[in-house]
Design a protein around this nucleic acid. Sequence first.
DNA 1: CGACGATTTGAAATCAGTCAAGAGCAGTGG
DNA 2: CCACTGCTCTTGACTGATTTCAAATCGTCG
Lengths: 243, 243
Amino acid sequence: MLQPLLDKLMLRSSLEAADQAAVIALPHLVRLLPARDYIVREDETPGYCCLLLSGYAYQHKIAGNGGRQIFSIHMRGDVVDLQNSLLHRADHNVEALTAVEVALIPVQAIRDIADAYPKVGQALWHDTLVDAAILREWAINTGRRDARTRIAHLLCEFALRLSFCGLGTLSYYELPMTQDQMADMLSLTKVHINRMLRLLTNMGLIEKNRKFIKILDLRNLAIIGDFDHNYLHMKDFEYSKRG
Amino acid sequence: MLQPLLDKLMLRSSLEAADQAAVIALPHLVRLLPARDYIVREDETPGYCCLLLSGYAYQHKIAGNGGRQIFSIHMRGDVVDLQNSLLHRADHNVEALTAVEVALIPVQAIRDIADAYPKVGQALWHDTLVDAAILREWAINTGRRDARTRIAHLLCEFALRLSFCGLGTLSYYELPMTQDQMADMLSLTKVHINRMLRLLTNMGLIEKNRKFIKILDLRNLAIIGDFDHNYLHMKDFEYSKRG
DNA sequence: CGACGATTTGAAATCAGTCAAGAGCAGTGG
DNA sequence: CCACTGCTCTTGACTGATTTCAAATCGTCG
C-alpha cells in the first residue's frame, strides 16, 4: 500500500533494504475522500500525516480579507503534511483537489522511523527541502513576475513534475483545477487567469479544455515563463527524453 | 563557538546531553564577512552550511526580468542554508545583510550527525519546517494582502522573532535593512514602501529612523497587519511577557 | 429540461508602479 | 573642518497592469 511513498523517496534518496522495509511497514489507515474535503484544518493538532495514494491535494490559507492563497499542489507519493510530524499545530489547511485515496500515518510512527532509521528520516527531510524550494519559486513567481509569465511558469512546472512521477507527459497532462483555483495559486483573479490562458492559446503555445492541457511548444513556454527546472531538484531528469 | 546553534535548537526541540555535545563538537570554520558579500550563489554546489553567529543574512533570487525576491531573513543561531546538506545544487543566493560572523559547517558533518544522532537530525529538520511555515506566511502576505497590511505584518513578525531570540524587544528593535530591501521582501517598490511606512507613522503605530524602529502600538499593528503568530511555532511564547 | 458551477467578455475603477528630481545623511579625503 | 561623493530617503505627477463589477454563455449532471 505504501509503495508510492517508497517510490517517491527512492527518486531522490538511496535507501537500503532495511530502510525500505521499514517504510513499507509503517502503520497506516487508508481512506477515500471526495474532492473539497478538508484533510487538515488550520489550528488543529493532527495525529497523522497524510500520504496521497491517488488524486491531488493542496495546501492553502485564508487571509483576514477573505483572500485565499494556495501554497502547493501535491500528487501521488507526496506526504502532504509531513510538517505535522514535528510541529504540533497546523498553520494552514490541506484540502482534496480531486477525489483522493490517502494513507494516514500516525505522527508518532514518523518520529519513530526517523529515530530508528536515520536514512529514512533524512529522506523525509530531503522531501520537505524540495517542497520548500518549490515554495520559494512560487514566491518569486507571484512576487516578481507578471501575469502571463506566472501562468506559463506554472504550466511548465506541472509538465515536469507530472511527467517525473508518471502522471502525464511533457506535452499532455491532466490539469485538474478550476481557473479560480489557479488564480489562488498565482495570486491573480480568475478573470485575469482566463484572459491570460486565452492569450497563451492565441500565441499557439497551449491548447486547453476543461480538464486537460496540451503543451504545443514547451521550449517557448519555458522562455515566456522564465522557467528553469533547477529548483525542482529532479535528479537525472532530462528534458528531451520525455515526450 | 556553536552555542548559538544549540540555543536555537533547544528552543524548539529537546536534546539529551550526548546530542548537545555532538552539536557543540561539529567541525567548523569561523569567518567574518562584510555586508553584501554573497555566502552562497545560485547554481553553486556548496560544501558547507552557514551558521550565523552574529549579524543578519537573507536568501534571494533574481527573476529574468531583473526583479529580486527576498525569501527569508536570518539571524543569530540560524543555519541559513541547511538545505545544502541534502540538496546538491543551490537554487538561490544567500547574502550578508549586515556584517556577519559565520561558522561554516561541512555538509558531510551535518549528514553524519543526523545519522549518528537522529534527534539532532530531527531538530534540524524541525528548523527547516519552521522556515517553510514562515515562507508560507510570506507567500500569503505578498499574494493576498495589500501594501499597508503587508508592511504591518512584517514589522510584527520581526518584533516577535527578534525578541524571541533576545535581539530586541516587542517595542523596539534594530531594522537593519534599507527600504529597497524591504520592497524586495514584500514584492513592492521602494517608493511604495516609503509611502506606507509614512502612513503607519502618521497613524501613530510606529516611529522609525534609519536603523531602528519603535512599535508604539503592537496590538493595533497586528490587527492592521492581519498578524497571528501561530505560524512562527514559538513554543511557550507569550505576548505580554516581553516589553 | 433545469440548475448550478465554471468560463468568457466588456467597461470602469484602483492600487501600486514608473519616472524624475530634490533632500538628507554618512563616510572620505584634502 | 569642509567639500565631495554616493547612497538612501522623500515627494509629486503620471501611467498602467490587474481588479472589480456585471452579465452572458457554456457544460455537465441529476
